[in-house]
């Protein structure tokens, strides 16, 4: 059914007969949306590039941050394997989507149903993986100290090829009263930060008592690796530490530059939100296909339109993957 009033001049050039872009209204609007959304994401990534170039010598190295794979807890570093898997899942779901579009062109309803279903599964696996990735990132790995100037100090073991050491491994236990400041005890119901597993005093005492430990700073050296201080410098530097940092939040993180975690949460979060809404839209269209809506309409252009959106989400991830994990 037409949504516009017929004037009888549709065939002529000025009556709408001319189609310079040769695409239907719906598809064109989806392209418009994609262009504007692409510009939004570009703005985020450009801001990320800005902050990164500003702190180019101290930015965290992504392969040292994202080293975990679900269900494997043997302490072996697996840099980026899981992100590569996530990328593959998303490209794969893009393939099933384009197969659904193709089946739609050929009016094969059962095939559209199958491929839409597989696309939804792929999207769900991706969103789940991203949630896991966030949880791992927030929980943290080794823990670190923060100095008065907001610098992050990490620890390595000089006797074991400068392997990273978690603060829990060397912190001494000093009997003291540490109480979480909860909302119910605060004035105007303000609560304090959650207490770290070890207090600053414990970590510093443990560090001073263990001679093979060294401090790793944020500074990247000419070799492209983080600078490791010698023992004397380390003992001097640790005096400036003011707090224990475990994991990541929007204010500070144990990986290094504060902006790193902020951009991670913001950009992957915004992308994850797109994937989530994509899955929701796919589910709606999936049920419409099941009900035979498009079979009755005579064409599956709606599948094509959500397909465009879904591919766009994949496209954005390709860029996020490069700029967050590879570069």
């Amino acid at each position: 059914m037409d949504t516009s009033v017929s004037t009888g001049t549709e065939g002529s050039v000025w009556g709408g007969g001319n189609q310079p872009l040769g695409a239907s209204y719906g598809k064109l609007m989806m392209w418009f949306f994609i262009v504007s959304d692409a510009l939004t994401f570009s703005g985020f990534l450009a801001a990320y590039g800005f902050s990164r170039f500003k702190f180019i010598e101290t930015w965290p190295i992504a392969d040292e941050v994202f080293t975990h794979v679900p269900f494997l807890h043997d302490g072996v570093d697996r840099p980026m394997y899981y992100v590569a898997f996530m990328t593959f899942i998303l490209i794969m779901s893009s393939v099933t989507m384009v197969l659904a579009v193709d089946a739609g062109h050929n009016m094969k309803k059962s095939k559209v149903v199958l491929y839409m279903f597989l696309t939804i599964i792929g999207g769900a696996i991706f969103v789940g993986s991203q949630a896991w990735e966030w949880a791992t990132f927030i929980k943290g790995d080794y823990g670190a100290l923060e100095t008065k100037g907001g610098r992050i100090l990490q620890f390595v073991d000089a006797s074991a090829d400068n392997k990273r050491v978690a603060i829990g491994e060397f912190a001494t236990t000093i009997a003291s009263e540490r109480v979480n400041h909860e909302r119910q005890n605060g004035i105007w119901f303000y609560d304090g930060e959650a207490l770290p597993s070890h207090s600053l005093v414990e970590v510093v005492a443990g560090f001073q008592a263990t001679p093979n430990l060294l401090i790793r700073t944020e500074q990247i050296n000419a070799e492209g690796e983080k600078t490791i201080l010698n023992r004397a410098e380390s003992l001097e530097r640790i005096k400036g530490a003011v707090r224990v940092v475990e994991g990541a939040n929007l204010i500070r993180n144990e990986y290094g530059s504060r902006l790193f975690a902020d951009f991670f949460f913001f950009i992957t979060g915004f992308h994850g939100f797109h994937v989530f809404s994509g899955v929701m839209i796919n589910i709606i269209i999936f049920f419409n296909v099941l009900l035979g809506t498009y079979e009755k309409r005579g064409h599956y252009e709606m599948v094509e339109k959500v397909g465009l959106y879904w591919h766009f989400v994949d496209l954005v991830w390709v860029f996020v993957f490069t700029f967050f994990y590879l570069v």
Binding site: S94, V95, V98, G307, H311, F312, D314, L315, F319
Partner: peptide, 9 residues
């Protein structure tokens, strides 16, 4: 990005 846009989209 080119192949995703050109062939998938």
């Amino acid at each position: 990005a080119y192949y995703i846009t050109w062939d998938f989209m």
